[in-house]
Design a protein around this nucleic acid. Structure first.
Lengths: 115, 115
DNA sequence: TCAAGTACTAACAATAAAGTAAGTATGCGC
DNA sequence: GCGCATACTTACTTTATTGTTAGTACTTGA
């Protein structure tokens, strides 16, 4: 019989926590990703709207971060075959599932600044 | 009279969220910070114990991240005037307040990997 | 023919974060 | 005096992330 929290099980749990943590941060931790995710909670937006909505992003970074969010399944991209081109971005269900987490992180961060 | 959620107030709210967010990530987002914070939930530890407990950290990084956590008030450092030197690190109350957030981030990240 | 509008893409520069390897300080016991 | 143990420093290299600037593709309307 083995103690419920032996060193091994502590380490396994911690490893698991750390693994999830580092993955989550790699998904939402980019310089502009929170901005994008917050912006898209208003609803779907086209590329140019996002650019206006997020002051300071360069086109390169906006595209790069959108592609990563898309690859990770948080955002879906829809291309309309028109000229001039129209591309819309929207949160997926999974993208929306970040909201509670993002809000908790924000709340904690805001608390610290005052403290 | 001004609509309750005019563009301005949306932006103010979003700015506030983003500000807290980026601050929080700068505090907990370092490569080894989560490892340190999780390790110290077991209780206070001395430097050499942390090093053993966190496989892969270099001394430079361990010290650097500990100093940042200390500067941000998450960790307290106690030096015992002995030879050879003994230095212990422990979570502050504020450091402990990160736990729910860290766990939520981990849980979200773990969910995604399977998804 | 040519500018306009939209959504990019590419090449390169700068900055930030992390890693590597070796060295330092201190006093105790031999 | 000399090595040992602990907790760091320092200097330097590598890698990752972000920024800057300029250019591309496509079709419509003047």
């Amino acid at each position: 019989m083995r103690k419920a929290n032996s060193t091994n099980s502590i380490n396994e749990t911690r490893l698991h926590l750390l693994c999830g943590m580092s993955h989550a941060l790699s998904v939402i931790g980019g310089r502009w990703k929170a901005s994008i995710l917050f912006s898209l909670t208003d609803g779907r937006k086209r590329y140019s709207e996002l650019r206006k909505d997020i002051p300071g992003v360069s086109e390169r970074m906006l595209v790069a971060q959108l592609r990563e969010l898309e690859a990770d399944g948080l955002v879906e991209r829809t291309v309309f075959p028109e000229v001039p081109p129209r591309v819309e971005y929207a949160l997926t269900d999974f993208g929306r599932s970040t909201q509670p987490m993002l809000r908790e992180i924000s709340a904690w961060g805001a608390k610290h600044r005052k403290g």
